[in-house]
Design a protein around this nucleic acid. Structure first.
Length: 263
DNA sequence: TTGCATGTTCCGGA
DNA sequence: GTCCGGAACATGCA
């Protein structure tokens, strides 16, 4: 699930239900998801602090507090953030629960591929996210153009590289390349000015609609609407979509709409 | 039982 | 130095 639009939705959950509320207690149900800290240290750092306006960089959620510590959350492939105001039983995969005066914020994650970190101050926050590139929502056309022209990597590999542009994941990049009719194996520096403009326009539009939806929406007219139903026809040309593995990631594309470079 | 899954990181080889 | 593919991480599902 979690790419930029999903994390933006989690940021909204935290902003809506956490901001201004004081953390009464931190329940660590599974300390496998804690990185470079312990349940005791996490509790000590956060108990009594109130959440302030949260931020997001790429796929990281930054839960600032009115003290100096900041909680950093990464959701891996299966993470979620839930608000629960009632007494609903905790989910099996609720790994860490933040108890507030009027309810709980629950960090849920099945596969525990990533997890939580606590930074004592802004300097530590910067250290933790130092490898992240600029957030994809803040990219303008010239940022993208210079990124492409300066890289010999394949398009898909570059766009999913968080240190180059932060927030795009496997689904989003497949969707953006399909909408732009570009094969993922193009060398970034070989993309001409016209294709760069189209790529930028599609990226903006797809990000915007996905953030509104809180996910990459599986709409019938989108590639994402078809990728879990393969074999399936391309929603645009009706030819068969193909699934292949590239760099260990499953890649869905339309061989007709997205011809291979040089082909 | 096997393969696959929207995350990152590390390693070896070209 | 750059880039790529593969494996690993932990868990559930078809």
């Amino acid at each position: 699930m979690p790419e930029l639009p999903d994390v933006e939705a989690f940021r909204d959950v935290l902003a809506r239900y956490g901001t201004g509320r004081r953390i009464e207690r931190v329940h660590v149900q599974d300390d496998d998801v804690l990185h470079d800290t312990t349940p005791q240290a996490l509790g000590r750092a956060l108990k009594g602090q109130a959440f302030t306006e949260p931020a997001r960089l790429g796929k990281w959620l930054l839960a600032h507090t009115d003290g100096s510590p900041t909680l950093l959350l990464h959701f891996g492939m299966t993470g979620e953030l839930h608000w629960c105001s009632g007494t609903a039983a905790r989910h099996q995969h609720d790994r860490v629960v933040f108890q507030l005066p009027d309810g709980e914020i629950r960090y849920r994650d099945m596969r525990k591929l990533q997890g939580l970190r606590i930074a004592r101050d802004d300097t530590e926050v910067q250290q933790i996210i130092s490898d992240e590139g600029p957030d994809a929502l803040r990219f303008d056309h010239d940022d993208l153009a210079s990124l492409l022209s300066g890289s010999r990597k394949q398009l898909k590999s570059l766009l999913t590289d968080q240190s180059a542009i932060a927030g795009l994941g496997n689904l989003l990049v497949d969707e953006i390349l399909w909408q732009t009719r570009l094969h993922p194996a193009y060398r970034a520096k070989d993309i001409d000015a016209d294709s760069t403009r189209r790529l930028y326009g599609q990226m903006r539009r797809i990000l915007s609609e996905s953030v509104t939806a809180g996910c990459v929406p599986p709409e019938p007219a989108w590639l994402t609407g078809s990728r879990d139903a393969l074999p399936a026809p391309c929603p645009r040309c009706g030819g068969w979509l193909s699934r292949e593995r590239r760099g260990g990631r499953s890649t869905v594309l339309c061989p007709h709409c997205q011809p291979e470079p040089g082909g």
